[in-house]
Design a protein around this nucleic acid. Structure first.
Length: 165
DNA sequence: AAGAAGATTCGCT
DNA sequence: GCGAATCTTCTTA
């Protein structure tokens, strides 16, 4: 299965809404790995979230993958998500993880090496990227750290860019 | 030890 | 649009 990442959110070092803010714990350990590793956690009793670490070892920061445009293996994704709606397959972080069968077994995996899950280089030309505040958080709510491909229908949430003063 | 919150989703109205 | 589902983690609200 493959997909194009169309929506992300950054949780940089020191951000009070980031899981690393209160230091390293059993759950967030992989967030402190080197850049390019997977940090997977379970939330709300229903959903897995997939993050890519983004800083030097020991820092603790990452990027949440919020949506992908399904490209290959669509029938498998439909089965994993138990729906026929292409647009809903991976629109939202929990749906993305479900479609790709992301779970705790992938926590800590190197996404820049060959393995069960990896990041590749985009084939299509980069389109216009918009930014807004992040979705679903309660702290640091004003930071414009959500990024998305403006014209892409597989993006979850608003596709209108905010103005940065 | 207990309780609340949480980077969400789904189904019903 | 709203509320329930569901469970792990961290705080003491």
């Amino acid at each position: 299965m493959t997909g194009r990442i169309v929506e992300t959110e950054a949780y940089p070092p020191g951000d009070r809404s980031g899981h690393s803010y209160r230091g390293r714990t059993a759950r967030n350990g992989s967030l402190f790995l080197d850049k390019g590793f997977a940090y997977v956690y379970f939330i709300y009793g229903t959903s897995y979230m997939l993050n890519v670490t983004s800083e030097e070892p020991g820092v603790g920061a990452g990027v949440l993958l919020r949506a992908i445009e399904p490209l290959e293996g669509i029938n498998r994704m439909k089965r994993h998500r138990n729906t026929e709606k292409l647009r809903d397959l991976a629109r939202g972080p929990g749906r993305l993880a479900a479609a790709l069968q992301i779970n705790q077994r992938l926590d800590g995996v190197d996404l820049c090496a060959s393995g069960p899950l990896w990041l590749g280089t985009a084939v299509r030309e980069t389109a216009h990227i918009g930014a807004t505040v992040r979705i679903g958080i309660t702290r640091e709510v004003d930071r414009p750290l959500r990024f998305f491909e403006v014209s892409n229908p597989f993006v979850s949430g608003p596709r209108i860019e905010i103005r940065i003063p």
